[in-house]
Simulated scan of single mutants.
Amino acid sequence: MDAYIYPLMGGLLIGLSTAAYLLLTGKVVGISGILAQALFSKERLLPILFIAGLIIGGSAYGVLIELSVPFPELRNPLLLIVSGLLVGYGTRMGSGCTSGHGVCGLSRLSPRSLVATVIFMATAILTVFLTK
């Protein structure tokens, strides 16, 4: 039963935070969009606080709950930069990221988000199948 508590709490917190963000700002949560707002918008405070909350919350969970999980191995910085740029380009090309389409788009019954989420999932399944 304990194995189900953390995913359930995480899902509830994601739903609560996306609903609260929509009510406070009138905008749908999508991490790529929030990052763009934090970098390029005149109203940066709420997006910056949201991103800080993601980092602080994830870090606090890692330190307080998952002490037994080893730190991931270091990766090639050039590979990380290129990967990040490709993901950023893809989210702009796809009009949103997995969080925006999967969490918020599907809850609003957006056909575009349904197609995007199916493509994300199919690509992930295929990638795992080919690499494992």
Rank of each mutant, 00 (worst) to 15 (best):
A3G: 00
L80Y: 00
T123N: 05
I55D: 07
K132F: 12
L64F: 03
L8T: 15
L46V: 10
T117H: 04
F71N: 06
A20N: 01
M9D: 02
S17W: 12
G105F: 14
I31W: 12
I81Y: 06
I14A: 14
S68L: 09
I119W: 04
G105P: 13
I65T: 12
T98Q: 04
S59N: 06
L35W: 11
L45Q: 05
M93K: 15
L24I: 11
C104D: 06
K132M: 11
S68G: 13
L45E: 06
L24M: 15
T127D: 02
V87F: 15
G100S: 00
V69A: 14
D2Q: 14
T25I: 10
T98W: 04
R108E: 08
Y4E: 12
L64Y: 01
L16E: 02
M93F: 15
G94E: 07
F50N: 04
D2N: 14
L74P: 02
S110D: 06
Y61E: 13
T18C: 15
F120G: 04
G58H: 11
L16S: 03
L13D: 01
R112Y: 12
L80F: 01
K42S: 06
I55F: 12
L22I: 00
L114N: 01
G26F: 04
S110P: 01
G30F: 07
A124V: 04
S83A: 13
R112M: 10
L16W: 06
I55Y: 09
E73R: 12
P72A: 05
H101D: 01
G30L: 09
L24F: 14
R108S: 10
L74Q: 08
L74C: 00
G33W: 04
L22P: 00
M121H: 02
G30V: 09
G96A: 08
V28C: 09
G100C: 00
S32C: 05
I51Q: 09
L12N: 09
S99L: 14
T117Y: 05
R112E: 12
S17N: 13
G90V: 01
P70H: 05
A60D: 07
A124L: 06
F40K: 07
F50D: 02
L79Q: 01
I51R: 09
Y4F: 15
G102V: 03
N76H: 06
N76M: 03
L35R: 08
T98N: 08
T18Y: 07
Q37R: 15
A36M: 04
S107C: 14
M9V: 15
K42V: 02
L13I: 02
L64N: 02
L12H: 09
G26M: 06
S59D: 05
G90K: 01
I34L: 13
S41G: 04
E66L: 14
V115H: 13
K27I: 10
A124H: 01
S59E: 05
L46A: 10
P77K: 00
L13K: 01
K132Y: 12
Y6P: 00
A60H: 07
T91P: 05
